[in-house]
Amino acid sequence: IRCIGVSNRDFVEGMSGGTWVDVVLEHGGCVTVMAQDKPTVDIELVTTTVSNMAEVRSYCYEASISDMASDSRCPTQGEAYLDKQSDTQYVCKRTLVDRGWGNGCGLFGKGSLVTCAKFTCSKKMTGKSIQPENLEYRIMLSVHGSQHSGMIVNDTGYETDENRAKVEVTPNSPRAEATLGGFGSLGLDCEPRTGLDFSDLYYLTMNNKHWLVHKEWFHDIPLPWHAGADTGTPHWNNKEALVEFKDAHAKRQTVVVLGSQEGAVHTALAGALEAEMDGAKGKLFSGHLKCRLKMDKLRLKGVSYSLCTAAFTFTKVPAETLHGTVTVEVQYAGTDGPCKIPVQMAVDMQTLTPVGRLITANPVITESTENSKMMLELDPPFGDSYIVIGVGDKKITHHWHRSGSTIGKAFEATVRGAKRMAVLGDTAWDFGSVGGVFNSLGKGIHQIFGAAFKSLFGGMSWFSQILIGTLLVWLGLNTKNGSISLTCLALGGVMIFLSTAVSA
């Protein structure tokens, strides 16, 4: 259960009878995928790494000078000259100064003066180019299975845990398959586009800190620079940016070097996208990844198990997540596992009318040892309800109150669905055939309105939902006002479609 501690969480529900669903994975976010007769899966884009970055340009932001020398000439005696002028490691300046009897010249006039100092770069920052084909995306998957609280967001041991898996995709191999043991396998067909235009970005490294910066900004930095990788004795261009020549006297000129420019660069980098280094690879934390999940090989585990009949206890007080759902960790005293956990939410304890829904599909106890633990997640209705676990006299209950409203949740879900469709863009549509167009249209309606429909009408039977949709269509056909007619027709059509397409 990876997503319960992530604030940016998206719930995606598969269409009834569908074998695939489109998701948008982004750094700092987590996606929970639910479908009829399929286990619930949490998917998170953990890291995006980039390798084989080529150094484009380096800037010196802290330097020192040494070996200063000057040469001067009297008027009419030609130009002052130093051998160091031809050495690229030196920074030199030529000027004219007033000369006369007082400073060793027989004539009054302008004399030539040249001053040089050896330039040494102490600290530099480097910009590297990123090729999209060198990106690698690491995705962690977790099935809502027989897990306890100690396994949440624990990325170790996934090789031997059938509840978890790690997959890596690249532009050259965008397809992967996550093996989930008894739950089958989940196929991923990803489109490795981060949403960032790397043709316009460089990877900047300064003092063990890293950013993504725009090329134009990078090339306009007014500091000494050299092109390409460091060859040991780089040729620094624009050395004068960190060196200041003071007022010249008759035979000498003082040279000083400016202080470190790291603070000024940090100020200019305010708002830039931060990154990290992992050995020789860069780690990015921006952008998104679009994936199509193929769920035809994914299956529920323990459908044929019998119900657990022994007593359950709450190991922890049920807690609310950031998303309005409830996490419950229970301990089973029996030894008759594997068995299914009898769990439901009810409005009252007399009729036990089921409300809400299970995020953890078909929760089971897989071990036959005593005191096995299991964590599950529920989506309670707004208002008061009861969490009921167990059967008969051994069942345990917990009162729950959820604040908020169904309308607010439906609106929030619609906005999130619209954002998801905007990110998917043209990849969500198939114009290759008439059937493809209608299929894409259905998927689009489901992406945007599916979660809201589930919130508003999830407790009704599909037949009642179709009746309401048919009534809206009838009202649309018999209303003389054009805008009201079109609105009723659209709402009725969407409702009829979703009542037959969205899983219960």
Rank of each mutant, 00 (worst) to 15 (best):
W474L: 02
V391H: 14
L141M: 11
K443G: 04
R94F: 08
L107G: 03
K394N: 12
I4T: 11
C308T: 05
H398A: 00
T309V: 13
G282I: 13
E13S: 01
L467Y: 06
A227L: 07
S260H: 12
G104P: 03
V434K: 09
H219K: 02
T179A: 15
N481R: 01
F449Q: 12
K124I: 14
V213Y: 09
E370L: 04
K294L: 01
W474M: 14
T309I: 13
A428D: 08
G157N: 02
R94A: 14
K215V: 02
P132M: 07
L284P: 09
T267I: 12
K246C: 15
I130K: 06
K38N: 04
I484F: 09
P192I: 03
S503M: 14
K251A: 06
D393Y: 14
A229K: 10
G184R: 11
T406C: 03
S286V: 00
L352I: 05
L298K: 04
D155K: 02
L107N: 04
S149M: 14
T267A: 13
T49W: 02
E44W: 09
S368Y: 05
R99K: 10
V167G: 01
L82F: 11
L498F: 12
L273F: 13
R420C: 09
T325Y: 10
D10I: 01
C308K: 07
R2Q: 09
R99W: 12
N172H: 15
T500G: 00
T335V: 12
S368R: 07
H210S: 01
K166M: 01
A418P: 12
G187R: 00
R402H: 11
E320M: 08
G150E: 15
I1D: 05
T406R: 01
E262L: 04
D37K: 06
T156Y: 01
H219N: 11
Q447K: 00
V317C: 01
A229V: 13
H148C: 14
G18A: 15
T366S: 13
L293A: 02
M495R: 00
S464C: 09
F497A: 02
W20A: 02
R9G: 13
V437E: 03
I468D: 01
D189W: 11
S66I: 14
G476K: 06
S403F: 15
A410T: 10
N237E: 08
V303K: 00
L25T: 03
R252C: 05
G476W: 08
E216T: 04
Q131A: 12
Y59P: 02
L204F: 12
A452V: 09
S260Q: 11
C105V: 03
T360K: 08
L491K: 12
G425Y: 09
A248Q: 07
S149N: 00
H214A: 08
N238A: 03
R138F: 14
M34F: 06
G442A: 15
S455Q: 13
A248F: 09
R2N: 10
M151N: 07
S7C: 02
V46R: 02
E168I: 09
H226E: 02
G28E: 08
L273N: 09
K454H: 10
G337Q: 12
L456Y: 11
I4Q: 09
Q261E: 09
V364H: 02
Y81C: 07
K373V: 14
F183E: 08
M140V: 06
D393A: 13
Y137F: 15
V502R: 04
Q36K: 15
A69M: 10
S433N: 04
G14Y: 06
V6Q: 03
L477H: 07
A410N: 08
G106V: 14
Q147G: 14
W462Q: 10
M206A: 03
D384M: 13
V91H: 11
S372Y: 03
F183G: 04
T160E: 04
F438I: 15
A311W: 15
S483G: 07
T397H: 03
A504E: 08
G259Y: 08
G18P: 00
S122E: 13
P381W: 06
I448L: 02
T254G: 00
M421S: 01
E377Y: 05
L242I: 07
S368D: 00
A275R: 00
K301V: 08
D98C: 07
M34Q: 08
V243P: 00
D155S: 13
M374R: 08
V255F: 15
I468V: 13
R73W: 11
P39A: 01
V415F: 14
G324I: 07
V24Y: 07
S51T: 15
G157F: 04
L477A: 03
R416T: 08
S199L: 07
P380N: 13
S129I: 07
E367M: 06
W217G: 04
A319T: 14
T231G: 12
P192V: 04
G334S: 01
Q36G: 01
R252H: 09
L196T: 11
V56W: 08
R99A: 07
V46M: 10
T254Y: 03
L376N: 05
A35S: 15
S433W: 04
T19K: 06
V46P: 00
D384N: 15
C74H: 06
G408W: 08
I65L: 15
T360S: 13
D336L: 13
M460Q: 09
G109E: 06
D220T: 04
N371I: 03
M140H: 14
L96M: 14
V388T: 03
S7M: 13
W217V: 04
E320H: 05
V6K: 02
T88M: 10
N208D: 05
L82D: 08
Q465P: 08
H226W: 02
A413P: 00
T327K: 08
K124Y: 01
F382M: 09
M345W: 00
G14P: 00
I468W: 11
S385C: 13
E240S: 00
R99I: 03
G492W: 00
V12D: 07
C92I: 07
G302A: 01
K340Y: 07
A80P: 14
K246I: 06
I445C: 14
D296T: 13
